[in-house]
């Protein structure tokens, strides 16, 4: 019987201090928007890294005189490495055809090529792996003199530098995101703490009468906590509405940047909807109950 009364008291308090309630919700919405921006940037950085990683491979350029039997032996050895996801072999003739197609409009190059007595290009083996870290393992597996004597050039080194740079940037951004999130949580904690203090001040006469007539501590405190949970709920709903409103327009720009990878912010938030929004609500509520209890401990001594 007490529970509906407590909810009714929380509801009355919300409407009676409508200005304070709306200001609190607005600040919480701004905090949540900032948090969602941090999440978006984090997701985009990860997607960018995956995109770059997806385009990375090792190209082994074989010497012109490398025996085909040895190359086949190397292909078989690479095929046995579990981290290798695909092997594309281009014979010397294929490489020459590709080269001619690529430079079809450049007569100077084509005529220079035709003057050579034989095909100057070696075969190519393109090796792909699931993750950028796997390439180091693959490279070390084939780093033996027997195979090195066949290979003119390995083209992974340039990509490795890019991957390391993006990886370092992602790490820094993730650390930054954690720091900003902690800062936002502290702000939310202080907002709720002050809101409850103001609410208690506004209700000081009622609280004094409540104590006098024997209301339980739970009954005095619960409406404030329920009010905070209501603020959090409305703030999460509003921030989600604003976020999706923005994504209706802004997501096209994100999609065009990640064209080919299929990444979109809308997809990211849809895929993690429960985790993000329920998580935000629960985190704010736990924080609200903690800061609220702290604020009330000082002001609601029996």
């Amino acid at each position: 019987m007490t529970r509906p009364k407590v909810i009714s008291f929380a509801n009355k308090s919300f409407w009676r201090n409508l200005g304070l309630s709306l200001t609190t919700i607005l600040i919480l919405v701004l905090t949540l928007i900032s948090f969602n921006v941090v999440l978006s940037v984090n997701a985009m950085t990860k997607a960018a890294l995956q995109l770059v990683e997806g385009r990375i491979d090792i190209s082994l350029l074989f010497k012109v005189d490398a025996p085909i039997a040895k190359i086949d032996e190397l292909r078989a050895a690479l095929g046995k490495i579990p981290k290798v996801t695909s092997l594309i072999f281009k014979s010397r003739d294929d490489v020459l055809t590709d080269f001619k197609t690529k430079h079809a409009k450049d007569q100077e190059i084509l005529s220079a090529l035709s003057e050579l007595p034989e095909n100057p290009l070696g075969a190519i083996l393109i090796v792909r792996a699931a993750s950028s870290q796997d390439y180091e393992v693959i490279l070390s597996a084939i780093d033996i003199p027997e195979y090195n004597s066949l290979i003119e050039q390995k083209t992974f080194e340039d990509h490795a530098t890019i991957i390391k740079k993006i990886g370092a940037m992602t790490n820094r951004m993730q650390k930054g995101a954690v720091a900003i999130s902690v800062l936002l949580l502290i702000i939310a904690f202080l907002i709720i703490f002050n809101v409850i203090k103001v609410a208690i001040y506004t209700h000081r006469e009622e609280i004094s009468v409540m104590r006098l007539v024997g209301a339980s501590n739970w009954f005095i405190r619960a409406p404030f906590l329920i009010e905070v949970i209501l603020f959090n709920f409305l703030a999460v709903i509003l921030s989600a509405i604003l976020l999706y409103g923005f994504l209706q327009f802004g997501d096209n720009y994100v999609k065009s940047f990640f064209v080919g990878s299929g990444f979109s912010l809308m997809g990211y938030f849809n895929g993690n909807f429960v985790r993000i929004f329920v998580g935000e609500f629960l985190a704010l509520s736990v924080l609200g109950v903690m800061s609220g209890s702290l604020a009330m401990r000082k002001y609601l001594k029996v």
Binding site: M1, K5, E205, E206, V209, V213, G214, S216, F219
Partner: peptide, 18 residues
């Protein structure tokens, strides 16, 4: 409580005790 009627003021003591 100035914003409550006489009835509500008296009822308040019962309400807050559930």
């Amino acid at each position: 409580l100035p914003k409550k009627t006489i009835f509500e003021n008296v009822a308040f003591a019962l309400e807050v005790c559930g």
